[in-house]
Computed example of a mutant assay.
Amino acid sequence: MIMDPRNLLYCGICTMPPEYCEFSGTQEKCKEWLQDHHEDVFVDIYGEKELIKGIEQVTVEDEGEGKSDRTFVKDKSAKLEAKLERENKKKMSSRVTIKRVERTKRKRITTIHGLDIFGVDLKKAAKLFANKFACGSSVAKNNQNQDEIVVQGDFSDELIELIITNWPHVPEDNIDYIEEQKKKKAPQ
C-alpha cells in the first residue's frame, strides 16, 4: 500500500509542529506567529476563545492602557526565548559541507559535515546513505575532532537531493559542495 507523503507545518519561532509549541518555552511568540501566518490552524488548536482574546488585547493596547497589561512574560521564559532565538540564528548561519575527496586512481569518497547542528542523527543518516547507495558509510572524526559522515563513492549530487527530501528543516542555501582533488606531481 503506497501512501502519499504528508506535508507538516512547522512553527517559524521554535521549529516544532504547532501542537508542541507549548513545550518550547516560547508559547506566546509561537501563538502570535501562528495567528499571523496560519489563522485556520490557530483556530483549530487554540479555539476561537484565544482568537477573540487576542483581538481584545490588541484593542486594549490601542486604547492606551499599554504596557502594564502586557507584563505577563516571566523572566525565565524571556531568557529561554532568547536562548532559543540564539540557537536558531546559529542553526541558520551554520553550513552543511559535502566534500568529494579523490583517493588513489579513480577511487573517491564523499564526506558530509555539519548535519548534526540541524539535529540530524548521524548514525541513522549514515545507515540511510549506505542503504540508498549500496556502499559503505560511517560516522568518523575529522581533523578538527568533529563528527562527519564518510560515504564510499562519489554521490555528491544525489546526497544533496536526499538531504533536502529527508530533512526539510535543513535549508538548501546552507548546503555547500566542495571538490577536493589530489595534487598531481610534476613530470621530471
Rank of each mutant, 00 (worst) to 15 (best):
L115R: 02
N88S: 12
G25A: 02
V170Y: 05
A125I: 01
R108E: 11
K74Y: 07
E102Q: 15
E85L: 10
N174R: 13
A186H: 07
Y20C: 01
D36R: 13
F129S: 02
E179V: 14
P187Q: 09
E19M: 02
A78C: 01
N142C: 09
L84N: 14
K123D: 10
Q181W: 03
E22D: 08
V150S: 07
I178N: 03
E179G: 03
K74L: 10
F129D: 02
D62M: 07
T71P: 00
N174G: 05
V41Q: 07
E50K: 11
K91H: 06
S68M: 04
E172Q: 12
E81M: 08
C11M: 11
K67H: 04
T26C: 13
R6W: 07
E63T: 04
C14S: 05
H38I: 07
G153V: 01
I160V: 15
D157Y: 13
N174Q: 11
N143D: 15
K79P: 01
A130W: 05
K74T: 15
F133N: 06
T26G: 05
G64L: 00
K83Q: 06
I112Q: 02
A78D: 03
M92V: 02
E61P: 00
E32A: 08
V58Y: 08
E161D: 14
Q146W: 06
C11I: 13
K183H: 07
K79D: 04
I175H: 10
N142E: 03
L128W: 04
D62P: 04
Q152G: 05
K183T: 12
K127E: 12
M92T: 07
E19H: 02
V120I: 14
Y20G: 00
V41H: 00
D154E: 08
V58S: 06
K107N: 14
E56M: 10
K89I: 07
D157L: 10
G66Y: 04
L128G: 02
E48L: 10
P187N: 10
R6L: 15
M3V: 14
N88D: 13
F155K: 06
K123N: 13
K49Q: 12
D154R: 06
S93F: 05
E148L: 15
D147H: 12
H113M: 04
V41C: 03
G153R: 01
F133D: 03
H113D: 08
K67V: 03
R100M: 05
I149Q: 14
E48A: 07
E87K: 13
I178H: 14
G47P: 09
T111E: 12
H113V: 05
I112F: 02
G136C: 05
H38S: 08
C30S: 03
E65M: 03
I98L: 12
S156H: 09
Y177L: 15
T165V: 15
I98M: 08
K124E: 10
E28Q: 09
E48H: 05
V43M: 09
E161W: 09
G12I: 10
G153F: 01
P5G: 02
D69G: 00
H37P: 02
T110I: 13
V41D: 01
P17C: 03
I149M: 13
V58M: 06
T97Y: 01
